[in-house]
Amino acid sequence: MKEWLSYRPGDFLMFSQRVYERLFVLHNEALWPLPLLALALGAALLLALAFPRPGRVRAALGLLGLAWAFVAWAFLWQRYAPINWGIRYVVPLFALQALLLALGLWRGGLKLPARWDLPRGLGVALVAYAVFLHPLTALLHGRGLAGAEVVGLAPDPLAIATLGVAAMARPASRGWALLAIPALWCLASAATLYLLDSPAAWPPLLAVLVALAARLLPRDSPPASRNSGSAKQNVC
């Protein structure tokens, strides 16, 4: 125990900020022009969540599930694991998250609210941030948009967008299940970025706090418990 206490958090960091940032530059270069397509799909995801219909919600969940599987393989396994052996143990968690999203599709087991309330507003705001603003954090590093972290291709914006969906998902048990892995990833990412002295450490941490707050806020579900017909109109 005494020995473990002698370690500083920075002792566990095995790569430099420059190497970490260049992962995204090389990733985008290798996938170009996929980042543009991912941005367009991100915008479609946001629209589907802002104006939900059952078919749109299923498409959004399916898209997110595919993105978790793709990021696990193309970014974590191919790029990040070679410089951080701990990532090998994270890849199965990303696959599990993809599976959870697929299960959410199954027989419409996971629904999103059609009515606007604060949790839904916070959830949609998180998705909007992940799609349109998070890529701009690359400018904080001075690496330019060539190193932008794009939703669907990079883990942080994907986790933040999924936190947005989890924040408003119903029933609550499935929302919490969907929230756990993205929250853990965001906390780990925030810690990594903090140790790298990066100002970009804050967004993933704040995203977790916002998602938790949204999940814990009371839901606007007036007639849902009394009238099953109204309940169907309040969720998609």
């Binding site: 960091l13 095995m14 790569f15 430099s16 420059r18 190497v19 260049r22 992962l23 090389l26 790029r79 070679p82 410089i83």
Partner: peptide
């Protein structure tokens, strides 16, 4: 080589 040489397959690094 701790940290400094952990550069993955980045050709420039």
């Amino acid at each position: 080589s701790w940290i400094t040489f952990n550069v993955g397959d980045d050709p420039a690094l």
